[in-house]
């Protein structure tokens, strides 16, 4: 067959670099950001930028070099976080950030692998992966940004949308209750479980820092405003008004039972560190038990084929 195709327009590296030079480096956090990627795609009043800033704040606080970390994210508004950070970043398929990160973390056990994704990505399509990674205690730092809906696709109901909340696919009110994420993560075996809102950036920085200190599966839920997808149909107002709601309605209770952490529409938000335990992570167990046994020629010794 003959092919008639359009002429390719080659990649103009120099023009791209010139465009980058325009705005990069104005902010001290810019050294953690990929050149030329700001402004980001998130709406005015969205909380995602705050979470990203807090993540950078935690890297700064822990004095991590960017080569010591990798960020994996899934699909959705939160999935785009990876693309902004100037480190090894992976923007994977919908819901599969955790299994991808599992492979990465096991291949590079000395790297801090953070998984940045939304509630829909981690708990709807990726729910199974999350509970299994928590059970295995893979060394992943999961940061779940919860905005109670699927924002990227235009505000549909998700696994965290509270009962009665309106979204574009529940115009008459949601008939399903939402997940209580910290409770689920705790029950699945996460060694560190915390929840904050974007109104608590200092606590969030500290919490992300704490999760970096632990080896194992940590889970931090960050409640973030989504004025476009969730705020508008539920009459929660602008991003700023949602932030005021977090200020007025969140209650910091460290060590609270995650079973009590359910969030109802316009209800109280329990925040704090709910769980901070220690148990050996997958890689440690695999090394000390499986690999050690195999190399000692013990039970794992293979017959010569």
């Amino acid at each position: 067959m003959k092919r008639r195709l359009r002429e390719l327009q080659p990649f103009d590296k120099e023009a791209e670099e010139r465009a980058i030079e325009l705005g990069h480096g104005l902010h001290p956090d810019d050294k953690y950001l990929k050149p030329g990627r700001i402004p980001h795609i998130w709406c005015p009043g969205c909380g995602l930028g705050v979470v990203l800033t807090c993540f950078i704040g935690a890297l700064r606080q822990k004095q991590f070099g960017v080569d010591e970390c990798a960020v994996v994210s899934g699909i959705g508004c939160t999935g785009r976080v990876a693309g902004y950070l100037d480190m090894d970043t992976y923007h994977t398929t919908h819901g599969r950030a955790i299994p991808f990160a599992t492979g990465l973390a096991l291949a590079k056990p000395d790297t801090h692998v953070a998984v940045f994704s939304g509630d829909g990505d981690l708990f709807a399509i990726g729910g199974n992966h999350l509970i299994h990674a928590a059970r295995r205690n893979v060394n992943l730092k999961v940061i779940c940004v919860n905005n109670f809906n699927f924002g990227m696709t235009g505000g549909q109901a998700g696994p965290t949308t509270p009962l009665d909340a309106k979204t574009s696919t529940t115009p008459l009110g949601n008939a399903e209750p939402g997940f209580n994420l910290p409770y689920l993560a705790h029950a699945s075996g996460a060694i560190y479980v915390a929840r904050w809102t974007t109104f608590h950036p200092r606590q969030l920085v500290h919490s992300i820092g704490e999760s970096f200190d632990r080896t194992g599966f940590t889970f931090i839920e960050v409640i973030a405003p989504c004025p476009t997808g969730y705020g508008r149909p539920n009459k929660l107002g602008s991003g700023l008004e949602e932030m005021r709601y977090y200020r007025d309605m969140s209650e910091i209770r460290y060590g609270a039972d995650p079973a009590d952490a359910e969030i109802k529409l316009r209800g109280k938000i329990l925040v704090g560190t709910f769980e901070a335990a220690d148990r050996p992570d997958f890689m440690e167990t695999y090394r000390t038990q499986v690999i050690a046994r195999a190399q000692a020629g013990g039970k794992g010794k293979g017959r010569a084929a």
Binding site: H27, D29, L33, I38, P39, G49, V50, T53, T198, V205
Partner: peptide, 10 residues
Amino acid sequence: SLICPEFAIF
């Protein structure tokens, strides 16, 4: 700086 989602203030 911490609460700005846009890296626009410090």
